[in-house]
Amino acid sequence: MSTEELWALHEEIASRLADALLAEKRVLEDRLRQLKGGVEERVISPTGRRPYPAVVPKFRNPDRPSETWAGRGKTPRWLAAKLKSGKQIDDFRIRHVA
């Protein structure tokens, strides 16, 4: 085979491979679309964290009622100081009316 014939053969093979790849890609994308159709997509918040329900405060500072604590995380300074002075944590518990 001459160089021109080999080059023509090369171009034909490359063209057929490209067509085969595109056809396979279309088949796979259709399958993926069908699979996604039955599954709800997750909603991701802008921060990247999953949404958590609102946490109701459980403890309130009697000196400054706007200061509350839900009982999660580090104990606030106002509560730590009151506990050191001998008070009990239940003294600061918010009584919820049901």
Rank of each mutant, 00 (worst) to 15 (best):
R16W: 00
R60C: 06
V39D: 09
K58N: 01
G73Q: 05
R60E: 12
G37D: 10
Q88N: 08
V55K: 15
K84E: 07
T68F: 00
H10W: 10
R64T: 14
W78Y: 00
R26Y: 06
R95G: 07
T75M: 08
E4H: 05
F59K: 02
T47E: 09
W69D: 02
R16P: 03
S85T: 08
L22E: 13
A98G: 10
E67A: 10
K58P: 04
H10M: 12
L9I: 11
E29I: 02
A8N: 06
G38E: 13
P53K: 03
A18R: 01
A23P: 00
R42S: 13
E11L: 15
F92M: 01
W78T: 01
Q88D: 15
R93T: 08
P53G: 04
E4W: 07
E4A: 15
Q88L: 11
S66W: 13
D91E: 12
R42K: 12
S45K: 12
S66F: 13
R31T: 07
G48D: 06
A54D: 03
E41P: 05
E5R: 02
K74D: 10
H96K: 14
D91Q: 00
A14Y: 04
K84T: 00
S45L: 15
N61M: 02
A8R: 10
F92Q: 00
E12L: 15
F92S: 02
V27M: 12
L32I: 14
R49T: 11
R64L: 11
A14P: 04
R26N: 09
A98Y: 15
L22M: 13
G48L: 01
H10S: 12
A54T: 12
R64K: 11
R50E: 14
V55W: 09
A54K: 15
R72D: 13
L21H: 13
W78V: 04
L6M: 13
A18S: 08
F92K: 04
W78F: 02
E5Y: 05
L22T: 12
G73A: 03
I94M: 00
R33E: 01
W7K: 11
K36E: 15
R50V: 06
K74A: 11
A20C: 09
D63V: 10
S15K: 10
G71A: 04
A20V: 08
L28M: 05
A70N: 15
A54E: 05
I44Q: 08
E4P: 05
P46I: 05
V56Q: 11
L9C: 13
W7R: 13
Q88E: 15
A23F: 11
M1L: 14
A70F: 05
K84W: 02
P57A: 03
V55Y: 05
W78L: 00
Q34P: 00
L32R: 15
R26T: 12
L22D: 13
D91L: 04
P76G: 03
L28I: 04
